[in-house]
Amino acid sequence: MIDAELASFMESAVMIIVGTCDDVLRPQVGRAVGAIVDRATSSVDLIVSEWQWPETIANVRWNGRLAVTFARPSDYVSYQVKGRAMVVPALAAHRACAVRYVEAMTATLVGNGLDARVTAPWLVDREPAALRLAAEMIFIQTPGDMAGQRLEPSR
C-alpha cells in the first residue's frame, strides 16, 4: 500500500501530526518526531513523546484508532494515513530516528525563516513511545484539486 516513493516522503523532513480519539469521541491532536516505514508490510512506526502528548498515547492504547498527516513545509505536499495502531516500546532505532528527525526538521524550518527556539516545542522526543500503525487508507491532502482523494492501493 505504501510504495517506495511515499515511504521516502514519510521518512523525510516533513511535519507529522497525529489524530486520535477517546472513548467519548473527543478527538486529540499530537505530534510525532520521526517515522520508520516497513515497506514490506505497509506498517509505519511513529515516534511520539509520551511526556508531551500523554492523551495521544492513552487513546491509542485504548482503541488503536490513528490518523497521521505528513506535510512538507516548503510546498504543502501532504498525505494522511489512517488505520489501527498499537503502542510499542521505543527501541534504540526509534530513539536514533527521533534524534535525526529533530535535527533535520529543525534545519528545514530554520531554512524557512523560523527561529530554532520557536520550533523547539514542536520537536520534542522526551520519553518516546512508538505507535505502530497498520496503514488501511491513504489520502492526498495537498491543497488543490486532488485534496481529499484516496490513494489507490496500486498507486
Binding site: I17, G19, Q28, R65, L66, A67, T69, K82
Partner: peptide, 15 residues
C-alpha cells in the same frame, strides 16, 4: 491543527 472524529471513532487530522 484541527482534529475531528467520525461517529464511529475514526480520527481525522489536518492543518
Amino acid at each position: 491543527i484541527l482534529a475531528t472524529a467520525s461517529a464511529d471513532g475514526v480520527p481525522n487530522i489536518s492543518y
